[in-house]
Design a protein around this nucleic acid. Structure first.
Lengths: 353, 353
DNA sequence: CAGCATTTGTCAACCGGTTGCCAAAACTTG
DNA sequence: CAAGTTTTGGCAACCGGTTGACAAATGCTG
C-alpha cells in the first residue's frame, strides 16, 4: 500500500470528467489527507502554517505530498485568502530598453521571494495604463508602475486598494523609487566644465514627463554651480529619430556640449551631427542619460549619466514585497544614485576647425 | 433605491472582516442577483453564456452589474473551470535584446485577445527553465517557450499537459515558430559574393543551440551555391565580449567576410577589429544576425540578417490562443521569413591596404 | 383549449484550498 | 494520580464563481 504507485489519485477508468488533463490529475490536499490518514484541514495547516501540527504528522503529510507530487492550486488558495503571490508591473513601452532592466530587476527580485511577475504595457497612453492597472488589481497582490503616465490622483486611488510602488516619479503618499539625478549630472557637468566647455544645451524629453523636468532642473543647478550657461532645447519625441530632428536646433544654440534627456536622443543626435560632418567629441561633446543597452555600441561610445534601472526595478519589487509581507514603511521615497559613465563622446573643447 | 449609491454592497460598519479592502469590497454575482431579483446562477449565465437567458433578464442583470461596478473574480472563475485567461512566456535571458521583441509581440497579441502575459526567465539554465515551466503550468492556460534549453522530451511532457508553443527551435509533435534562415542568409551571401568576396567565416553560437546549427547549415548551403568557401569559427559565448575574443581567430582564417551567429558577436567583433586598425567594410565585411535593437547604433551601422522576432512572438501567441480556443491545428511548424538588412558594415572587397 | 415542445430560471453540488471553533489527546504539576 | 494547561486534529463554513438536472413558464400546434 505504501509503494508509490504511479497511477496516483486518478485511477478511475472513466477518462477525466471535468479537468481535461488526459494524464494524471493534480493531487489535492484531500488526496494527501486520505493517503496520510488525516483530515484535509490538517494537511492544509501542515503545508502552510509552520509548527501548527506535530512533527510526526508533519512528516507523514510531507511524505504523502511528495509521493503524490502535490502542488498547491494557486486559485483555490487565492479564493479564500485574497493572496495570489503575484505582482504586476506596468511599463509605458515594452520595446523601450529603459524598461528592460527595470523588468529584469523586478522579475529577479520577485522570483527570489517566490512571487510571479505579471507584465502589462500601456503603449504610452494614460488611459490604457489605467485600464491595465484596474484589470490587474483584481489579480495581483500589488503593483509597480514604471514611469506612469496617469494622474497622481489615479495612482493614489489605486494605492488605496492595494500596495503600489512607483518608479521614476514622485507621488505623494505613495512609495516611490527614483534615481537622484543630482550626483550624476553634477559629475557630468563638472567633467564638461573641466574640459573647457562654457555652454551646455539640454535636450528635453516629453513635456509631461516628471523625470525630464527633474533632469532639466538638475542640469540648470549643476551648470550654475560650475559657471556654465545652460540652454534648453525641446525634442519632438524621446527616440533616436527625435534626436536626429533636434540636431539643427542644438547647433543653433552654439553650445559645445549637449546633455540629453535620454540615450536614444543622444544617439540620434550624434548620428545626425556626424552625418553633417561634425566630429564628436572634438567639435561637440554629447552626454546621454540612462546608459541603456547599446549605449556603448556607438562610435565613439556614448558618455552618459547612468540611471541604475535594474536597481530601480529590484528596489521597487523589494519595497512592494516588504509591504505585502507586513514589514517596511507604508510610504516614502527610495532614492538611488546616478553616476557619470565617461566614454568617448565627450571631451575637451577644441578651437573651431 | 435606484441611484448608484457609492457606498455599494459593503456598507456594514465593522471594518472589513476578511477582505482587508478598506474601501468598497468588490461586488459579486450574489450582489447582482439580489439587486436584479434573480438567482446567482442566472447572473453567471447572463454574464458568460451568450443568449442563455432572455433579453429582458439580460438587460436587467447587465444594468445591475454596471451599477455595482462588477468585475469577475478571476480566481473564483478559474477554480471550477480551470481556465485562467493567462499564458506564460519563458525566455532564457530577459536582458538579451533578442527576446525584447518576442516578449512584446506575445504581449500585444495576448492583450488584444484578452489574455494576460506571465513572464519568467530561465537564466540560461535548463533546470531553472523546467522548474519555472512546471510552476507556471498550474497557473496558466498555455505556455510559450522562447529558445528553450531543456530537452525535447521535457518539452513534450509539458505539452501533454497543456498547449505549448516553442519559438526558435523545432520539437516534434509540438507546434513551433521558427525563422527560416535560408532566404536571409542566401541574400547575405549573394550580396557578399556580388561584392567580390571569396571566403566567408561563420562565427558559431553555443554548441547546444539548435538555431546556431541551422544558421551554420544555411551559411554552408548558400556559400556552396554562390561558390564561396565557408569556414567555421567557434565562439566562447554569444555576446559582445565573445565577439571581441573571437577576432583573432577570424583574422586567422583569412576570410574577407564574416557572418556571425548573432548581432552581439558581430558588434564585439567589429569593435575589436576597428580597435586593431582595420577598416570595416573596406578591409573586412561583417554581417550579423537578428537585427536587434541597437544594431544600427554602430559605425558603420551593422548589416544583418533580420529575424522577425516580434512576428515570432506574435505568431506563437496567436498559435497558442487558437489552440486554447479550439481552432487551429494541434501541431506543425510556422515558418517566418528572414531577410537581409543591408547597412554599412558590409561591402566591396578592396585589395589589401 | 388541451397537449406537447421549447425556453428560461432555480436548486444544489462542486472546484480546492483556509480558518475559527471546539473537543480529544498529551503533557504538566502539585 | 487527579486537575489544569497546552497541543493537536477534526468539523464545517466559506471564498465566488460554474454547470448539470430539473421544474416552471412560455410558445406553438391541432
Amino acid at each position: 500500500m505504501t509503494e508509490p504507485k504511479t497511477q496516483g489519485p486518478a485511477a478511475s477508468p472513466e477518462t477525466g470528467k471535468k479537468p481535461a488533463r488526459n494524464g494524471k490529475a493534480n493531487a489535492t490536499i484531500y488526496d494527501i489527507a486520505k493517503l496520510a490518514g488525516v483530515n484535509p484541514s490538517t494537511v492544509s495547516r501542515a503545508l502552510s502554517k509552520p509548527g501548527r501540527v506535530s512533527a510526526k504528522t508533519q512528516k507523514l503529510i510531507e511524505d504523502a505530498a511528495a509521493q503524490l507530487n502535490y502542488q498547491v492550486n494557486p486559485f483555490a488558495r487565492a479564493l479564500p485568502t485574497g493572496r495570489t503571490n503575484t505582482f504586476g508591473l506596468i511599463v509605458a513601452d515594452i520595446t523601450n530598453p529603459t524598461f528592460f532592466d527595470i523588468i529584469r530587476g523586478a522579475q529577479i527580485t520577485g522570483t527570489r521571494r517566490d512571487y510571479t511577475l505579471v507584465l502589462a504595457e500601456s503603449a504610452e497612453s494614460a488611459v490604457t495604463e489605467l485600464t491595465a492597472a484596474r484589470r490587474m488589481m483584481t489579480t495581483v497582490d500589488g503593483l509597480i508602475l514604471a514611469s506612469p503616465r496617469m494622474d497622481d490622483d489615479d495612482i493614489r486611488a489605486l494605492a488605496r486598494d492595494k500596495p503600489v510602488v512607483v518608479i521614476n516619479r514622485e507621488v505623494e503618499d505613495v512609495p516611490c523609487v527614483i534615481p537622484d539625478v543630482r550626483k550624476g549630472i553634477g559629475e557630468a557637468v563638472r567633467s564638461l566644465a573641466g574640459n573647457g566647455h562654457k555652454k551646455l544645451a539640454f535636450v528635453a524629453g516629453p513635456a509631461r514627463s516628471w523625470m525630464s523636468a527633474r533632469r532639466w532642473e538638475g542640469a540648470q543647478a549643476a551648470c550654475e554651480w560650475s559657471h556654465l550657461e545652460a540652454v534648453r532645447v525641446e525634442s519632438s519625441k524621446p527616440t533616436v529619430d527625435g534626436g536626429r530632428q533636434v540636431a539643427r536646433d542644438v547647433l543653433a544654440t552654439g553650445a559645445t556640449a549637449v546633455l540629453t534627456y535620454n540615450d536614444l536622443l543622444a544617439i540620434g543626435l550624434m548620428q545626425e551631427l556626424q552625418a553633417g560632418g561634425m566630429a564628436v567629441p572634438d567639435q561637440i561633446s554629447i552626454v546621454g542619460f540612462d546608459d541603456i543597452f547599446g549605449a556603448d555600441f556607438t562610435t565613439p561610445p556614448l558618455t552618459t549619466v547612468r540611471s541604475p534601472l535594474g536597481e530601480c526595478g529590484a528596489g521597487a519589487a523589494t519595497r512592494l514585497l516588504d509591504l505585502l509581507q507586513g514589514s517596511g514603511e507604508p510610504a516614502g521615497t527610495l532614492r538611488v544614485e546616478t553616476e557619470l559613465v565617461l566614454r568617448g563622446s565627450s571631451g575637451r573643447v577644441f578651437p573651431a576647425g
